[in-house]
Design a protein around this nucleic acid. Structure first.
Length: 485
RNA sequence: GGCCCGUUGGAGAAGUGACUUAACUCACAUGCCUUUCACGCAUGCAUUCAUGGGUUUGAAUCCCGUACGGGUCACCA
């Protein structure tokens, strides 16, 4: 019987959930669900200096917001595996590291940072640019080690990487990948402070947590042979690896946290009013394509269609515009109740809408449903109505045209005779027709002056909506202002 | 620089030897709808798959070289 599929997403708690991390998590999650397996959320917190308070929970909760639900995590651990943070199992790493030393597969290294830097420079001087540890501590006698220890020097532990060994593995995304051990030095597996390095800890973790498949970013491709050496020494079966392309910016470089023109954190998208399903869908299409020409997929559909063989091998550019388009599609798909529920938090922060009741808010929300591509954007549209745009000289001149005088007069009178403004598309029609008969202006000549006078913009939502939003008093105000000029 | 990976339109990409006069989606352009914008609908947008050579009756698809791009070379993950 095949082993149960177990995959993981293992962020370091050094920041919030990044869009690249979310994509990794999504693909692992889809793979697990497709194969009826488990998706594990664990924490790689060995970089004690850079860990940020609260980051692990924000990572997890952003993931949950995206509906990527771990079967096991720091919040719902499986007793069988018990530890979901690396710092909780330091003694386990220590035990395994000692085992490697006893086997002769690893050794203590007393070199200081300065020693290593010196050696690096020496190698560089000889034209070697890929630094390799020179193994000067490999054959230290016990006496020498004791001596150094007495001086208070704490050793790190290095893995002995065999010479001239070809290491080959079948990558789920890239196919056969080959490395030569000569390109790697003996790398550190335990830091001198007793904390394991990533390449060591990840192997131990994946092994003891029965991880069967690992989908991760391409930046880990060259770490894989190092990890494979460790598996080999322990005689453990490594998981299957799949190295996904990285996400690049419009310059073709790996998306870095300093790329300010791209919003990179899931929490920021949440605050801006993106829908989790839209982000999942967008992420799905980043470096992966479905079999069919359909592009909009729910998570449940993704479980069905996901196929790791269709992961792309070349880097994917993050296309902001497509994300906005995707989100606008998902907003349009919401039914009116769901939509209002989604958009209301953004409306109540708008000062112009302070004392409005839900009925009014709902009405205003619906007006912009097909206009917005993210939640917060609705306030931009609303403000354009509430805050009149300053008119330029040409526009003022245009409005002063004699032929519009009667339009403004009659429009004012007619609005004034209304008890309150509560038009619908249907009730606005006769209102307009009556006016048209009085002023003998129609089409653009009818609407444009009014629109300009009311909002200061040439474009916008339908006229009756503007009237409803502004209300009778404000409409009269703005019209009389123009009339008096 | 070494090692690894990649290169199909502005972007995501389909394509795995003849079904391709290279899908589909975003963007862009135009037209329709509409007072306008947006939505929606329709149409257009790569004679060519980085480049040179080879294999083959036949190549974007296979092989080799070149160029370009990216990843990585830490007691970071």
């Amino acid at each position: 019987m095949d082993k149960k599929v177990r995959v993981r997403y293992a962020p370091s708690p050094t920041g919030y959930l990044h869009i690249g991390g979310a994509r990794s998590a999504l693909f692992n999650y889809l793979y697990a669900k497709k194969h009826k397996g488990d998706f594990v959320f664990r924490i790689e917190d060995t970089d004690v200096e850079r860990n940020i308070e609260g980051a692990e929970y924000s990572q997890l909760h952003d993931l949950l917001w995206l509906n990527i639900i771990p079967d096991e995590s720091i919040e719902n651990p499986n007793p069988k595996y018990k530890y979901y943070r690396q710092m909780e199992k330091l003694d386990i790493y220590k035990k395994y590291a000692q085992q490697l030393i006893d086997m002769g597969a690893a050794y203590e290294c007393f070199c200081s940072e300065e020693d290593l830097e010196k050696s690096r420079l020496e190698q560089e001087a000889r034209g070697i640019t890929a630094f390799k540890y020179d193994r000067r501590c490999l054959n230290l006698t016990n006496e020498e080690k004791e001596e150094l220890r007495k001086k208070g020097i704490k050793p790190s532990i290095r893995l002995k990487v065999p010479d001239d060994e070809v290491i080959e593995f079948e990558d789920l995304v890239r196919g056969k990948v080959t490395f030569n051990s000569n390109d790697f030095g003996d790398f550190v597996i335990m830091k001198s402070n007793g904390i394991p390095t990533y390449n060591f800890a990840v192997v131990i973790d994946d092994h003891i947590m029965d991880i069967t498949h690992v989908f991760r970013g391409e930046e880990h491709l060259s770490n894989t042979p190092k990890q494979l050496f460790i598996y080999k020494y322990f005689n453990w079966e490594p998981p299957k690896f799949g190295h996904m392309t990285i996400i690049v910016n419009e310059k073709g470089k790996k998306l870095s946290k300093r790329d300010n023109d791209i919003v990179q954190f899931v929490s920021q998208y949440r605050k801006m009013g993106f829908l989790p399903a839209a982000i999942d869908n967008f992420l799905l299409l980043l470096g992966w394509t479905p079999d069919s020409s359909k592009e909009i997929y729910s998570l449940n559909e993704m479980f069905e269609i996901f196929d790791e063989k269709r992961l792309s091998k070349s880097p994917s550019m993050f296309d902001n515009k497509k994300l906005y388009w995707m989100n606008s599609q998902y907003i349009k798909m919401l039914d009116d109740d769901k939509y209002f529920e989604f958009i209301k938090p953004f409306l109540i922060t708008n000062e112009h809408l302070k004392n409005k009741d839900d009925e009014f808010l709902r009405k205003i929300a619906l007006i912009f449903k097909s206009e917005i591509s993210y939640g917060e954007e609705i306030n931009k549209f609303i403000n354009e109505i509430y805050v009149r745009n300053d008119l330029n000289e040409d526009e003022i001149k245009y409005l002063k045209d004699e032929k519009f005088k009667i339009l403004f007069d009659e429009f004012y009178k007619k609005i004034n005779s209304c008890e309150q403004l509560n038009f619908t598309k249907e009730t606005f029609k006769p209102f307009v027709n009556e006016l048209i008969n009085l002023v003998h202006l129609k089409g653009k000549d009818f609407y444009m002056p009014l629109r300009l006078a009311l909002t200061g913009y040439e474009h916008g939502v339908e006229m009756y909506n503007i009237l409803n939003i502004l209300g009778k008093d404000e409409v009269l105000n703005r019209i009389s202002e123009v009339r008096s000029k």
